[in-house]
C-alpha cells in the first residue's frame, strides 16, 4: 500500500499541471525522498497522505479515504505530541455560504473518523474554507475532484 501511494500522488501532480496555469503547491504531492524522517510532517504529507477526497455535494468517506485516514490515525498515534487542524474544502460549483457549511461537514467527517480510530479528540480541530482555497485551478471535474477535499494539517512541531 505504501508503495502505491507515491505513484497515485505523482499522477495527481500531473493532473494538476495539465489543467492549471499556476504552479500548484507541491509540498503535499511531491514524491518523498527515501531519507525522510518517518516522524516528520513531510513524511506524513507524502507517505501517509494528508488528504482525502469527496464526491460532489457529499461528505461520506469512500474506501480509499478510509484507508488514508487509518494510516493518518496510526501515524498520529505513533507521534503523540502532534496536533492537527482538519481543513474542509469544496469545489467552486456551489454558493459561498453553503460551501462553508459543506466544508465544515467534510472536516467533521474526517475528524470523527480519526477520533473513532483512537486519536484523542483534543489533538484535532477543524476549519472550513468552503470554495475559497482551491488547489487545482481548472474549471473541470478533473480539478473539482481534487478540490473537494479534507486535509489534515499539522499545527505543531518541526515542519520538515
Amino acid at each position: 500500500m505504501n508503495l502505491i501511494r507515491p505513484l497515485a500522488f505523482g499522477l495527481m501532480a500531473l493532473g494538476l499541471a495539465a489543467c492549471s496555469t499556476n504552479t500548484p503547491e507541491t509540498t503535499s504531492v511531491a514524491p518523498a525522498p527515501q531519507s525522510l524522517d518517518p516522524s516528520s510532517v513531510a513524511y506524513f504529507n507524502a507517505e501517509v497522505g494528508d488528504r482525502v477526497f469527496f464526491g460532489t455535494d457529499r461528505s461520506t468517506l469512500d474506501v480509499e479515504a478510509q484507508s488514508t485516514l487509518r494510516r493518518q490515525a496510526a501515524w498520529l498515534l505513533d507521534n503523540p505530541t502532534r496536533t492537527a487542524v482538519i481543513e474542509g474544502h469544496a469545489d467552486e460549483r456551489g454558493t459561498r455560504e453553503y460551501n462553508l457549511a459543506l466544508g465544515a461537514r467534510r472536516a467533521s467527517a474526517v475528524r470523527n473518523f480519526l477520533v473513532a480510530e483512537g486519536v484523542p479528540a483534543g489533538r484535532l480541530s477543524s476549519v472550513t474554507f468552503g470554495k475559497e482555497r482551491p488547489e487545482a485551478l481548472c474549471s473541470a471535474e478533473s480539478c473539482w475532484s481534487l478540490n473537494r477535499r479534507g486535509v489534515t494539517v499539522m499545527t505543531d512541531g518541526p515542519t520538515s
Binding site: S59, E97, L100, A101, A104, R105, R106, A107, S108, A109, N112, S126, V127, T128
Partner: peptide
C-alpha cells in the same frame, strides 16, 4: 463553533448567523 452567514434583523438589534457544531450547520 465556526460562525458564518450573518445578517442583521430589520431593527438592527439582532444578527442571524449559522453556527457549525460538529459538522452540522
Amino acid at each position: 463553533f465556526m460562525s458564518f452567514a450573518p445578517r442583521f434583523s430589520p431593527d438592527g438589534g439582532r444578527v442571524l448567523m449559522s453556527l457549525s457544531d460538529g459538522g452540522n450547520t
